[in-house]
Design a protein around this nucleic acid. Structure first.
Lengths: 135, 135
DNA sequence: AAAAAAACACTTGTATGCAATTGAAATATC
DNA sequence: GATATTTCAATTGCATACAAGTGTTTTTTT
């Protein structure tokens, strides 16, 4: 390593920030952040899961998840419901408003993916995602 | 996009977090975070630069930079010195203690890079870095 | 030279990111 | 069946991330 800019940790953190900023700008009109968007997209794919399960899928720990849920719950997009199978757990559910928001977010996210990856060929995208998933 | 886990923003944010956590664990013994480490490595490569210049190189905005510098300055690793060419600016300099720390950090970072990328061939690493830099 | 615009470092406020801890409930062990 | 361990959701404390704004100094424009 001859220069810190060759450090893989720097490269990956930088790329993550760039991605987060880009998505944030795309969803800013809807009043959400990039992380709130990702949480809602995962709920849109599968609803009524526990906070722990949602945390595993989105890669958010329970401390961060609590805050994110507080905020999107206050916006009326999700609801915390008691879980009858396990009294320690909660079920996180999209409200009707949350469902409508999720549909909009899905469209925005798909377009943003395309725009963000415009310069890359399909093969490059597949290769990039494959490498990232192996980290 | 059939599943939110295919979203490039999710992939990149996740990879950035994984990288940050890995480096953080490697440098934890030295009492530093991953971002503090990267800032010191950039200073080790070129010392006595302004906060703005350091921010450009490390991709930290001035608000974040102020906090990071406060902390590593309190540890005695860097010093803020007046800039005689531009009275608005400051010069950020490694102290003697900071120099010694930087040498240790460089070694740790090099080893961590190797460990983190163990599964990947040289060609894959070059390709990955190339793709990340084009984002 | 005077006025306007830009750059520099910093602060504030809000949103993650994460280690460590808490209290309650479920599971494992004995 | 009583006890120990684990799991769940949440909180606290500290470290980024970043938009917006401040006061000071420099540069540009007129």
């Amino acid at each position: 390593m001859k220069h810190p800019s060759e450090c893989i940790f720097f490269n990956l953190v930088k790329a993550g920030k760039k991605a987060s900023r880009f998505l944030k700008n795309e969803v800013a009109l809807l009043g959400l952040t990039s992380i709130q968007t990702l949480v809602i997209l995962f709920l849109f794919y599968q609803d009524e899961i526990t906070s722990a399960e949602l945390g595993k899928r989105t890669e958010l720990d329970s401390a961060t998840m609590a805050g994110v849920l507080d905020r999107i719950e206050n916006m009326g997009l999700v609801a915390r419901r008691p879980n009858h199978d396990d009294h320690r757990a909660i079920s996180v559910c999209l409200t009707d408003e949350g469902q409508m928001m999720a549909e909009k977010l899905w469209d925005v996210a798909e377009k943003a993916n395309t725009t963000f990856l415009k310069k890359f060929s399909k093969e490059e995208v597949v290769f990039l995602k494959g490498l990232l998933n192996r980290l």
